[in-house]
């Protein structure tokens, strides 16, 4: 997957989490100010990022988001953190690419090793 696509996908995911938090009652109670117009602009930005993804990837992302709320799951110690199933070794070995979990279907994300 090209770097630019991966970058758009990751930012889209982070922005979706941001939008989800803004709508969370527990978050609202903390008391940070949110401007409604800016909130609409953020939704437009996420839609714009979605359109910049290859069509098939964008469609998969939206289906997974509807199904699980979070379309991407990080991988830790060869486990998908979406469904907590161990990934096949051969899949984990391909960690340079973004792949989907064979169990839950979420898009898998391997964080770069620091």
């Amino acid at each position: 997957m090209p770097d630019i696509v991966e970058m758009h996908l990751k930012l889209l995911f982070d922005l979706d989490n941001l939008i989800s938090d803004m709508e969370d009652e527990s978050y609202k109670k903390i008391g940070f100010q949110i401007e409604e117009a800016a909130s609409d602009a953020l939704i437009n930005k996420r839609n714009q990022l979605l359109r910049q993804l290859p069509r098939e990837l964008g469609e998969i992302y939206e289906i997974l988001k509807k199904r699980y709320r979070q379309a991407i799951a990080p991988v830790e110690s060869e486990f998908c953190l979406g469904c907590f199933q161990k990934l096949p070794t051969q899949l984990a070995a391909q960690s340079q690419n973004i792949l989907t979990c064979p169990n839950c279907g979420r898009i898998l994300y391997w964080r770069p090793k620091n």
């Binding site: 990751k10 995911f13 982070d14 922005l15 989490n17 941001l18 938090d21 803004m22 008391g31 940070f32 100010q33 949110i34 401007e35 800016a38 909130s39 602009a41 953020l42 930005k45 991407i72 990080p74 830790e76 994300y109 964080r111």
Partner: peptide, 25 residues
């Protein structure tokens, strides 16, 4: 992007920038 929604400056000289990100474990 979070700051564009509204500043996380809560007043009296303190700010609490925050977000969730795929980048942290």
């Amino acid at each position: 992007k979070r700051e564009e929604l509204g500043s996380t400056g809560i007043g009296k000289g303190i700010a609490i920038p925050h977000c969730r990100s795929l980048a942290v474990e």
